[in-house]
Design a protein around this nucleic acid. Structure first.
Lengths: 329, 329
DNA sequence: GTGAAAGCGCTAACAG
DNA sequence: CTGTTAGCGCTTTCAC
């Protein structure tokens, strides 16, 4: 079933069929109805490859994500997918893992697929690193970065002010008398670095001293965080609260604390389903994926429809703290 | 940069370039090298739409998933994506939610995109329901169902014997003296029904009586499960162990129990990251996504490469129990 | 082993 | 308002 068949069945030319397919104004209502009827009847739908070839676009968005099996990214993918579909855009998902070279490779990969745009979920780079791969890609298609900041032509960042979120958390803890706040982080991506900045600014704002020994790197899993806290406990490091750069890290910390019979405030990041599952349920900094993702797709469609000037290159939302049992306001 | 440019630069015809692009044997080693060199040099890659139009295939697999933001589905998507990419296949993800009509709609949607095959993650139907939408779709492309059983031509099921998994769990609990085992389930999809069957068979095998009051439906979230258990506790229902059809449900149950100061065995399903996060960490029935997903993609590629007879229509793996603190062997 | 040429199904410029 | 026609870039017979 091709456009020719439809044209023949209607007694019109393929151009006319194409016009009604593309909602062109220049078709008489009468013929439009007729064509529409036949299309319906035959359950015809145009060949996407042929259309793609002609337009050099299949209305396909590339989604580059570090790891969908992670609750945070999964939520983002879910939200983006939903939003994209609302607007008639398809998406192709690629998961890169943490390796920077893989990320570069997959950006190239998406470009070869002639996607209409690329959405980056999470930081595909280090703040101080080489972003030329993104810059080059942006030469071909618009790039939307969700939750990272990239000041490059044709790339649009939609992010949450996580630094302020952490800063706020630190101040709240300080308000509650915590003077030594342990910060457990797992990476130094853009987001990771912002969080550390927020931590430091929070300490400063609260008039607390900054000591590097309260800043520890762990890998992003429960066991690592748990073991780290056990070790620090054994070393008698005198911390009176813990913030984790990810919920899973905070939960690992909780486990170590509760095993040691210690009850101090713990705060996580991402406000994922894990936070609810923890015992005590985990207070967590919410980086507003529910707002970021729709906003990102919004930016995307504006650019696709109205050109590069149609959307702001940065859109920043404030973080909020979701209070639960592990630290009450 | 098109195939014409490459052909010109090499002093050969586009047919020859096409041949080396497609690894045809019928090219002299000499010309092949030359063409390859130019392709490399120019960083040329063929237009996927043009290729798609000619071959009526873009080597794209449709992935139909209920909800990627759910840890279980997210893990499956992640595993499938990885496996697909290994084999040079792309994927288009659609999330349908639980509504059956949406699922039907999205299967049609994928078909219109001319995907080469469709992978179903989770049950897109009720066991007793109407599967004609799947049957029809299977007329167009092969369909692989991960963790559901669909006996239809051109659909291939790759699943875990969850019934046996639950049955085993019930028997183990019975061995430990639990005589009234509460089973909390959330749905009656294929997988959901199998689990209930396993529960019943387990009771039978252990010589325990089956009572409907120990079989309760809740919705798939922590709060619902928690409230249900609270209610049952208040009603003094005399259960001495709980199995949840999903980890999150089991965790909700745990919360209710620990609030009531009760310590009885709890077992979840899916062995997701949530199980590790729970306190006590949750013993969970693992439905082997790590094996199912690669196996499913394996089936898929066999069929794509060698025709419908090249793979078994059913592939079943046994479930295992991952023991943790909430119930020890 | 290589080239010429006919599609694949659609869009859009152009002519009427 | 409608039809004709020239691509879009690649694959694949069919000759040579």
């Amino acid at each position: 079933m091709t456009i020719y068949d439809i044209a023949k069945a209607c007694g019109v030319s393929i151009a006319t069929v194409s016009r009604v397919l593309n909602n062109s104004e220049k078709v008489s209502e009468k013929t439009r109805q007729k064509v529409l009827a036949v299309i319906q009847e035959e359950n015809y739908s145009p060949n996407p490859f042929a259309r793609g070839l002609g337009l050099d676009s299949m209305k396909m968005i590339g989604l580059l994500c570090t790891d969908v099996s992670d609750a945070f990214y999964a939520k983002a993918v879910s939200l983006v997918e939903h939003e994209l579909k609302q607007r008639g855009l398809d998406m192709m998902l690629v998961c890169t893992g943490n390796d920077l070279n893989e990320k570069k490779k997959y950006i190239q990969f998406l470009l070869k697929k002639h996607v209409d745009a690329i959405i980056l979920i999470g930081s595909p780079f280090r703040e101080d690193g080489d972003n030329s791969h993104v810059a080059e890609a942006a030469h071909e298609v618009p790039i939307i970065a969700i939750n990272s900041l990239l000041e490059l032509p044709n790339v649009y960042s939609v992010l949450c002010d996580e630094a302020s979120g952490i800063e706020l958390a630190v101040r709240r803890l300080a308000d509650n008398g915590c003077r030594n706040i342990l910060y457990l982080y797992d990476n130094l991506t853009y987001s990771g670095q912002q969080k550390i900045r927020g931590y430091r600014e929070g300490l400063e704002a609260a008039g607390l001293q900054k000591q590097d020994k309260f800043l520890c790197q762990v890998s992003k899993d429960l066991i690592s965080a748990q073991q780290m806290v056990q070790r620090l406990l054994k070393q008698q490091l005198p911390f009176s609260a813990i913030i984790g750069s990810e919920d899973i890290i905070a939960i690992g910390a909780q486990k170590a604390l509760s095993a040691a019979g210690i009850e101090i405030p713990v705060i996580g990041c991402n406000n994922s389903v894990l936070a609810e599952c923890a015992t005590p349920s985990l207070t967590s900094i919410d980086n507003r994926l529910d707002i970021l993702c729709p906003a990102a797709v919004d930016v995307l469609t504006k650019i696709l429809d109205n050109g590069p000037q149609a959307a702001p290159s940065q859109t920043v939302f404030p973080a909020i703290i979701q209070y639960r049992e592990s630290f009450k306001e």
